[in-house]
Structure formats: C-alpha cells, structure tokens
C-alpha cells in the first residue's frame, strides 16, 4: 500500500489495485468534507454531532492512508466512541426540546460571504504551506505497530509523554472542581 500523495505520473487504471485504493481514498476524503458540512450546517444539534462523528470516521480513514493504523483505531475509539457520544449525551441532557433554533437571529447579509472567504483563504494558505514547504522527514518508527509506538513514547518522546499525563491530571482535577461547584 502506498500513499497517494507520493504517486506521480499517469493516473492508475480504475480497475487496478491502485485505482481501487484511490477511489477508497477519495471516498474517505469525501466523508471528511461531507461530515464537516453536516456538522456546520445542520440546525438540529444531534444531527450536527452525527456529522461530526462521520467526519471523525473519515479522518480515521485518512490516518490509515498515512500508514498509521494505530492512530486510525484510536481516532475511532476516542473521537467517535467517546467524544462525539459525550457531546450528544450533553445535548440530550441539556435540551430535550431540540427545536429551539440556535443563535440564527441577528445575522447581517455579509456574514455568510465573509465567513466563506475567510475560511477559503485559510484553506488556500494551509494548502500552499503544505505543498511548498520543504518538510523535514522523520524516520518511521517500526512498522507502525503498537510495539514501536510504545517504545518510541517511552524512550525518545518520554518527556512529551509525561507532559501529556500532567495535562490529563489537570483535566481530572478541573472536572472534580467543576463538579464540586455544581453540587453546592
């Protein structure tokens, strides 16, 4: 399996393995974009969360195409399985009457085009940055399996790993403080 970005030259035939892989890649990207559009445009919050879940699923596919299946699985497990579910859960707990329109009242005619142009510019700039920069290529850690990931995390990237655990600790303490406040 090769990443499509690395391929140059003529487009592969539709019925060759490369062609099928390419179609699947395009489907994944379409999933990300479609999910993002649903998440942004739908007025019903739960639908927006469903769109977000679709977007996350597509992102997992993109990770898989970047040859890191572990990251893809974790994306599914954490973002689809936990984050979007928790968001949906929060919405269901907060507003049982879902039809209340969400902040669409005082919007000038310029808001839409302005937002579109800003995001378009941002997208163009990021794409340009991605394509033009001479990226420093890091060596691949093992075969992308968890053994290699674990070894790398506990040796080369031990400092980062410890920092992440501190962040998690802070999050837990913060949650406890917030919960305590709500109780009084």
């Amino acid at each position: 399996m090769q990443t499509l970005v690395a391929q140059t030259g003529a487009a592969p035939s539709l019925f060759s393995p490369e062609g099928v892989v390419g179609i699947i890649f395009l489907l994944t990207v379409a999933l990300v974009v479609a999910g993002a559009f649903i998440a942004v445009n739908s007025k019903r919050l739960v639908r927006a969360v469903a769109g977000l879940a679709v977007c996350f699923t597509g992102l997992a596919g993109v990770y898989y195409f970047l040859l890191s299946p572990f990251l893809a699985m974790m994306q599914m497990l954490i973002y689809v399985g936990a984050v979007s579910i928790l968001i949906a859960f929060g919405i269901m707990m907060a507003t049982p009457e879902e039809q209340q329109s969400v902040g669409m009242k005082s919007r000038s005619a310029l808001a839409g085009p302005l937002a579109a142009s800003v995001s378009g510019l941002l997208f163009a700039a990021l794409s340009l940055l991605g394509l033009k920069t001479e990226w420093q290529v890091f060596p691949r850690e093992g075969a992308g399996d968890i053994k290699a990931v674990g070894l790398a995390l506990l040796t080369n990237y031990g400092y980062v790993f410890e920092l992440i655990s501190v962040v998690l600790l802070l999050a837990i303490i913060g949650a406890l403080v917030l919960a305590q406040k709500g109780r009084n």
Binding site: V46, P69, M76, I85, D145
Partner: peptide
Amino acid sequence: MELSVLLLFALASIGMIAILLGGWA
C-alpha cells in the same frame, strides 16, 4: 490484522452511536 483487538472495540463504539441516534431520532 495487527491491531484486531483495537479494531473490534472501535467498531463496537459505532454500535453505541446507533442506539443513541435511534433513540433520539
């Protein structure tokens, strides 16, 4: 597959979404 255990749990989390969405919808 190298990460099959993880894949099973990742897929199981989609089943949870089905119940949530079915209930809400």
